[in-house]
Amino acid sequence: MSEGLDVIYDKIYKYCYYKMENKQIAEDITQETFLKYFAQNIKIENGRQMAYLYTIAKNLCTDYYRKGKGEERRAEWSENEEYLTEDFSKNLERKYVLRQAMKNLEEGQQEVLFLRYVNEISIKEIAAFMGISRFAVYRLEKAALSLLQQILRKEDFYD
């Protein structure tokens, strides 16, 4: 295993938070993901297993929506939550615009960008997770990136 369990924990949490936009829920799902994963597996050591971990997390997030009332519920619980870190010095608004712009992309495109750049997961692992070929991941990444740039240009992001 190249990464320690605590690094993986942080990444899964980030992923869940990106999906749920609520700290408590994200952490609950992160822990459940671990418990579920380790109920069947002993170790995380290769891409396929890492992909499986993300699959569990994603399914749990989806299940959570289904149990709740879907999107309205999401708006409710994420009302007061924001991507706030201890580091306030960085350009908050710029980050916000970028996140909003991401939301205009299709789910698959969003996910590729998130996993690739935020969690820094290899194309191989993403391919296993999404169930598509590596080449398809690569194409999806390119397309998503240029689309995002287009949107951002409209938002005057680059001024």
Partner: peptide
Amino acid sequence: KEIKEAFEIDSPVGKKQFL
């Protein structure tokens, strides 16, 4: 790089205890 930074969040509170 900016995408990475945009989604940066603080470490979750329950991590240490859970692990």
